[in-house]
Design a protein around this nucleic acid. Structure first.
Length: 479
RNA sequence: GGCUCUAUCGUCUAACGGUUAGGACGAAUCCUUCUCAAGGAUUAAAUCGCGGUUCGAUUCCGCGUAGAGUCACCA
């Protein structure tokens, strides 16, 4: 159990601006945010842009947009600077230099003159000996002053076993071979992640660090730096990995292929995404699975974060999205539907039909993309060759179909334009449909005549949306 | 290869060392139904293997197996 401290909880999400955010990144952000909000703490967005080669233009804006979509509001960040404190690492170079000099003074850092070729050579040797490569085995004892252009390394004075506590995994430890002289400041003057994040976490008063398991193996190094700086490490919260959902065996790397904002574009609700991702590696117990944003904040606890990896499950996301949809007021859904439709389809008349069959949000998109809704806007093209087969209900004869369509026209003509509603249409058509051997003998041909599809919403609602004139004309044309 | 970590239905997971191992997604079947959905009901489906500790292991320990992470002037 992490020590209960009276100090205010401060968490951070610290992405590097190297592109979009995938589910793994986002879940880390969610946990950090939930923990801060639950404890009335502070959530910081920090941009770790110390690798100028990998930096991708526009990433910061993209990250902020993603957080905004999910409603992960931050109290401080690159666009919310405070006096004397910046949250973009490239703007904090002086601070890292200050800390670097402290380490040099204390004998914990040294300038490293070895060339990349030499290091490569060392690495090769280590590999031949089937050992992990440790720079400190090859460290030169010649001391030189640290100057710009020369990398600065941390110095492991005393290789020893490190034991630490992780809020999720409990007690962790690693032998002395986990400790090595790593680069603090690169030759281009930028700090490495390994150094910068420690300095920043100290400076910003971070109390809890949510991170992926890829940092476990370098934690002994971090703890040694904290010791050298006379600082206390934060509580480490190691989230389980999210595995790829495709292959059966090779659950290789993270399922990072997809930009989380794509889910927004596919029509998923932010609260559903939040719910789904929070539950990927965390579970409060009990049988409730649909949690609102407020419920998540209230319920979330780092004690219940899973240890082992979880696979992405798109079907479950669909289901959670559906359940969240049910939670929404009707007007809210209508607004969302319209916003998600292609421009030419943004006709409020289409809403009832989507409403009637909305199950998963993405269904609507699929319907739109497949052209299944086109018949609302234009006269359907009836399949020429297969017309008989398509319009036919089971084994009813062509004569029967024709007479039924005529009967439908006659019936519908009796409803006047003002009363041409789904309910009235249903009442009158059902009346004659019930007189058939099977209702389908009448209803199916009508549905096909109106939509040009053998799979569609029911004919009543279609007719009411099309209006009396269009409905009659389509029925006539089908005959 | 070294170091570190993990292991319950297909998937996400629940179970003070004592349960007929529970729930959800998905699947299958049935009901409803003019089609496709939606909705309702039912069913199948798991403690990785071998030892040990214990009156009793999903749970604790060891070994094995499988998987993951890491071993950068990347984060």
């Amino acid at each position: 159990m992490p020590e209960k401290s009276t100090e205010k909880v401060v968490t951070r999400f610290a992405p590097s601006p190297t592109g979009f955010m995938h589910v793994g990144n986002v879940r880390t952000a969610i946990y950090a945010w939930l923990w801060a909000r639950k404890n009335n703490g502070i959530f910081i967005l920090r941009i770790e842009d110390t690798d100028k080669e990998r930096e991708v233009a526009g990433s910061v804006e993209h990250i902020i947009e993603t957080l905004k979509w999910l409603g992960l509001d931050y109290d401080a960040g690159p666009d919310k600077c405070e006096p004397g404190m910046c949250y973009t690492q490239s703007e904090r170079l002086e601070t890292y230099k200050k800390y670097a000099n402290i380490l040099i003074e204390r004998g914990f850092a040294y300038a490293d003159l070895s060339s990349r070729e030499e290091i490569e050579e060392f690495r090769k040797k280590a590999k031949e000996k089937k050992q992990a490569f440790l720079f400190r085995d090859y460290r030169s004892e010649n001391k030189i002053d640290w100057k710009p252009g020369i990398p600065l390394r941390f110095k492991i004075k005393e290789p020893k076993r490190t034991i630490w506590h992780d809020a999720v995994r409990g007690e962790l430890s690693a032998g002395p071979e986990a400790l090595d002289d790593f680069i603090l400041i690169k030759s281009d003057g930028y700090p490495t992640y390994n150094f910068a994040h420690i300095v920043d976490d100290i400076e910003m008063g971070i109390t809890h660090v949510v991170r992926g398991q890829e940092f476990i193996s370098s934690t002994p190094n971090y703890i040694t730096v904290y010791e050298a700086l006379d600082a206390t490490p934060p509580v480490y919260i190691t989230a389980p990995p999210i595995m790829g959902g495709d292959g059966n065996k090779k659950m290789g790397k993270r399922d990072g292929a997809k930009d989380v904002l794509e889910y927004r574009n596919e029509g998923y609700l932010p609260d559903a995404m939040l719910n789904f991702l929070a539950f990927l590696g965390w579970n409060p117990g009990g049988e409730k699975e649909i949690y609102t944003r407020e419920e998540l904040i209230k319920t979330f606890d780092i004690e219940q974060i899973q240890i082992s990896g979880a696979k992405m499950n798109p079907e479950k996301l669909d289901w959670i999205n559906k359940e969240h949809l049910k939670l929404l007021p009707k007007e809210e859904i209508e607004k969302n539907i319209l916003a998600n439709l292609p421009e030419h389809m943004r006709n409020p008349k289409i809403i009832p039909i989507i409403f009637e069959r909305i199950s998963k949000w993405s269904d609507v998109r699929i319907m739109v993309e497949a052209g299944e809704l086109d018949f609302f806007f234009k006269q359907p093209e009836y399949a020429k060759e297969k017309l008989k087969e398509k319009i036919q209900y089971k084994n009813s004869s062509p004569e029967k179909i024709t007479s039924n369509l005529k009967l439908a026209i006659k019936t519908l003509e009796e409803i006047n334009e003002q009363n041409f509603t789904t309910e009235n249409i249903k009442d009158s058509l059902m009346l004659i449909a019930n007189m058939q051997e099977s209702r389908g003998e009448l209803l199916h041909p009508v549905r096909y005549a109106l939509s040009g599809q053998d799979k569609s919403p029911d004919p009543f609602i279609i007719a009411s949306i099309l209006g009396k004139n269009e409905t009659l004309s389509r029925l006539q044309k089908a005959i």
